[in-house]
Each structure stands twice: as structure tokens, then as C-alpha cells.
Amino acid sequence: MVWPFVVIAVALVVHGVSRRWPDLVQQIVMPLGVAAIGVALWQIGCDMSGTDIFPTPWDTVLAFGDIIESDRLLGDSIASLYRVTWGFVLATMCAVPVGLVVGWSTRSFWAMNPIIQGLRPISPIAWIPIAILWFGIGDGAGVFLIFLSSFFPICVGTMAGVRNISLVHQRSAANFGVHGFELMRRVVLPGAMPQIITSLRIALGVAWLVIVAAEMVGMDSGLGYLINDARNMGSRYDLVVATMIVIGLIGIVLDLLIRRLETFEEVKWGYVKQ
């Protein structure tokens, strides 16, 4: 058995390196190490179980070649991103104004909040039959489902952001005669903005989860459909896992993109401790 010695040797090297270059170790070596351990466990699991359906890491790498070559990857990624983009943008355009008004006006809060809270816990997945009934199989149903899954987190986040605006800021605005639309633009919207951005981030994450599920059940393109297709056409689990990795990577990129919103000077105050 040589493995224990390898592990000890690696540990000693990591320890030595981490004392000299602590940042390098913490930010690059350690995460890569954990990933390498994960891949190793994956490989060991495949070897020990003797599976011939579940792909090894190397099978998965080769599968990337297949899906790229078949032109499916790009087309299906674009199909999924298209639905998510439109559903998310439309939801933002509706949910932010609704959240601002409902959060600000006590009367509309009492009128609207029960409906919003009542619809919110219904999984967007549960809407799939209705989405297909109304929009048929295709982009319309996907956009509708993403709209639903994004609308509620954004609306509720905006409402909470508005209701958290401090009394001194409300009074400052009143003192300087800021009313009506100007109040929304100058005080309510910017005051709620940090929380709105957080809710956008949550909503986009949820949207990316939902679109894959929706495409597996009720659509004929997209990354979710690709996963289903790969399984149905001769149990190509190597393609399934490769597609899952693509889904994860796109999800990370989407989150990184939307996090850029948190770096604007107008909202930084909401994320740093005062």
C-alpha cells in the first residue's frame, strides 16, 4: 500500500507551501485539491462498482467532444438561455414596480400581499401543465414558467427592501418635499435597490434551476431536453453528466454576471457594514 505515504507526502508539501504563499494556497491550491479528491472518488467509485453505464471522469471528457461535435450543445444552451433571459427580464420589469408600490402603500400592501404570499409557495414546476395548455410546447411556455419563478422572489424582495427604508430617510424626503413619482425614483427605488439586487440574484438562480426541469418535462429543446434525450437514446449517461457540468458552469457565469450589479457605488452601502 503506497497510498498512505502519498497522502502524507502531499499533506506535508501543502503545509510547507501554505506557509510561504498563504493566499495562493487558500485561493487556488486548496479548491483544486478538493476538486481533485472529488474526481478521484468518482473514479474509485466507478472502478469499485464495475459499472458500465455510469461514465468515468474520462468518459465525460470524451462526451464533451460528442455534444460539441453534434452541434447540440450550443443550440440547446442558447434555447435555455433565451427562455431564461426573456422570462427573467419580463419578470423584473413587472415585479419591481409592483413591489415598489405594494411595499410603499399600506393600502395596496393589505390588498395584494395575501395573493402574492398565496401564489408564491406554488412551485413553478406545478405550473408546467397550465403553461403547456396556454402556450403549447415551445419557448412561450418556457418564458412563462421562468416569468413565474422569477416574479415572486423579485416582488417579495422589492417589497421587503421598500419596507426596510428607514424612518429618517422617509422623513428627510418628506421634509424636502419629495413626493409621488419623484419619491419612488429618488428614495424608494434607491433605498430598496440593494435588496432588489439580492432578490434578482436569487431569482436568476431559481430560474436556471427551473428551466432545466421544465425542459425535461415539457419542451423539445434546451439543456434539460438534452439530458432527457441523452438518457432516452441508449442510456448515454456520459452525455448526461457532461450536460450537467455545462448547466453548472453556465449557472456560475450567470451568477457572476448579476453580482456585478452589487459593485455600483449607489448600492454598495447596502452590502458593507456601516
Binding site: R171, S172, N175, G177, R186, P190, E266
Partner: peptide, 19 residues
Amino acid sequence: GPDPRRVFVFQEYGIFPWA
């Protein structure tokens, strides 16, 4: 009601952190 001719200075920072 409040009036812009008479201004209130708050203890807990009434200025807008987003501006």
C-alpha cells in the same frame, strides 16, 4: 406637516447613503 422652509437634522444620519 413638514416643510422645505424648515429643515430637520437627524441624529441617525438622514442623508441618503445611495447618493
